[in-house]
């Protein structure tokens, strides 16, 4: 399999008056063609900062300090805005966190999608572009007649579908879906996720799902990366992450939501709160909340290493869940 996106030790910091906020610190992962991965973590852990770094749509005070982002074999970190504009949407499209506000209220929804097409393919006529948008509408389950409506005439779910249609407009190789369904109710959420997955498989695109909801991600992503305080702490196949989480934070996450099948268990919460990323500490960032922390954890940052094939963990004391359960029992 050919990698489509590779992040290598990406560091993205925000300069604030109070100091540097290390929103993404040493983030590395590889995404292959046609593959979908999930990026999970609680609010403020740097998920969106990572996705915005890939699109290079950082606010003025945010900058990429070091590291590489390879998209389609090219390092885009030093690309100019003009060069990026060619990659944006045509190469990497995005489904935004707030679909409600992602459409311009004063233009027709169809026209906003047509705009994306004609911006990247100047030879496409307006009628052809409209035809394509109509097909996309059918693909995501929208009535093509609604193309000429304004965003305020759409319901929340319809807007989300329109946004998905828009992300597909230029046949991108990669789609970053940043909390694609957070604003929707559970039933619509599920339908939309399934549709996204279907389309992704059909068009053989790569996807990055970003969410704080690991259950949502598990449904659609083949691999999962768990982020904590600006770092990826664990990454592996979805099944492995669910069956044998090794990082204490991942274990905590897994035990913090109920399972439908299986016995009823007390939900475990992780005590404490995530560290302030402003002037983040040099030691393991999870150490203050970690039941397994030792002196080592308070001295240096654990390296991100492979504990078994395709299972990466950044921890000095990767745990074995089975052993733990036995211990508790």
């Amino acid at each position: 399999m050919k990698p489509i996106l590779e992040l290598r030790n990406l560091k993205m910091y925000y300069d604030t008056q109070a100091g540097q906020v290390k929103a993404a610190d040493d983030v590395s992962f590889v995404l292959n063609e046609g593959e979908s991965i999930g990026l999970v973590g609680e609010s403020g852990c740097g998920k969106t900062s990572v996705s915005m770094s890939i699109m290079k749509l950082l606010p003025e005070n945010g900058r990429i300090i070091s590291g590489n982002i390879f998209f389609d074999g090219k390092d885009i970190v030093n690309f100019s805005d003009e060069e990026m504009n060619k990659i944006r949407w045509a190469g990497i499209a995005m489904i935004f966190q707030a679909a409600m506000n992602s459409l311009n209220p004063v233009y027709r929804v169809g026209d906003q999608i047509v705009e994306a097409i004609t911006a990247h393919e100047p030879n496409v006529t307006f009628e052809e572009a409209r035809q394509r948008v109509a097909n996309l509408y059918k693909l995501v389950g929208l009535d093509p007649e609604r193309m000429d409506n304004y965003p305020h005439e759409y319901s929340g779910g319809m807007k989300q579908r329109a946004i998905i249609a828009m992300s597909l407009a230029c046949n991108p190789k990669l789609i970053i879906a940043d909390e694609p369904t957070t604003a929707l109710d559970v039933i619509v959420q599920d339908t939309i996720l399934r549709e996204l997955e279907k389309v992704q498989k059909k068009l053989n695109m790569s996807m990055i799902y970003i969410s704080h909801d690991i259950a949502v991600i598990a449904e659609v992503a083949s691999r999962i990366a768990i982020m904590y305080a600006g770092k990826i702490v664990e990454m592996s196949d979805s099944v492995v992450i669910f069956k044998r989480p090794a990082h204490p934070y991942a274990i905590g996450l897994m035990s913090s939501f109920p399972s439908i099948r299986g016995e009823k268990k007390e939900l475990v919460t992780i005590p404490g709160e995530p560290p302030n990323l402003l002037n983040a500490p040099d030691h393991c960032r999870f150490a203050p909340r970690c039941p397994f922390a030792t002196d080592e954890c308070w001295k240096q940052t654990p390296s991100y290493s492979e504990i078994e094939s395709n299972h990466f963990v950044a921890c000095f004391h990767p745990q074995n869940l089975k052993k733990l359960v036995n211990m508790n029992a």
């Binding site: 805005d81 990026m84 949407w89 045509a90 966190q97 311009n104 705009e115």
Partner: peptide, 17 residues
Amino acid sequence: KEDFITTARAKGLPDKV
């Protein structure tokens, strides 16, 4: 600051547009 401006930028539209 609105999200649809971020969308417009993400669409790769030129700065002036």
